[in-house]
Amino acid sequence: MATPLEFTEAARERAAKILDRYPAEYRKSAVVPLLHLAQEEWGHVSPEAMACVARLIGCSPVKVAEIATFYPMFNREPVGEHVLAVCHTLPCALTGCGSVFDHLSEKLGIGLGETTADGRFTLRKSECLAACDRGPVLLVNRRLHTHVSPEKVDEILTELEKG
C-alpha cells in the first residue's frame, strides 16, 4: 500500500463535526458521511482513503472497505470532472435509455466506465435512481436530469462545456 493519506486541516475539522453527531459507541455509523468527505477531498475513495477513514473511526480498514465497495456511488478509481450515469434499469430501458447511452458514448468518444482523455467526463451506467415515472434519467454529478433524449443530452453537454 502507498503512503498513508491524511485529510487536510479543513477536512479534519469537518470530519470531527461528523463524528460528533454520533455517540462514542456508534462511531462506526459515521463511515458513510466520512467516505463522502473523502470522495470530495480526493475525487475517489482509494484504499488509502479507506484506511484514513478507518483510522478516524478507530475500526479495521476492511470494515470501511465493506461499505465503500457496497455503494456504487463511491468512486474507487479516479474519475473525470463530471460523472454521467445513465440509469439502465427496466423502466428507463423501456423509455429508451439505450439510445441516450449510445449517444453519450459516441459524443464523448468513450465507452462504459471510461474517462475522456482530457479528464472532463466519465461515463457510467447506474441502477435505479428512483424516478421511474420520468425516465430515461441521467445523473450528472449530483444532479438528476429526467425525460432525457439524445437532443437533451446535447444541451446538457453544451451546458457542462460552458460550465
Binding site: 500500500m1 479495521s60 476492511v62 472497505a65 465493506e66 465497495t69
Partner: peptide, 22 residues
C-alpha cells in the same frame, strides 16, 4: 477481535476479503 475479514462488493459479486496490506 482482530477484524481482518469483511464482505466486500454487493449482491452476487459479494466476497470475503482482507484489506490490502492487512
Amino acid at each position: 477481535g482482530t477484524s481482518e475479514l469483511g464482505v466486500v462488493q454487493m449482491g452476487s459479486k459479494s466476497e470475503i476479503a482482507t484489506f490490502e496490506g492487512v
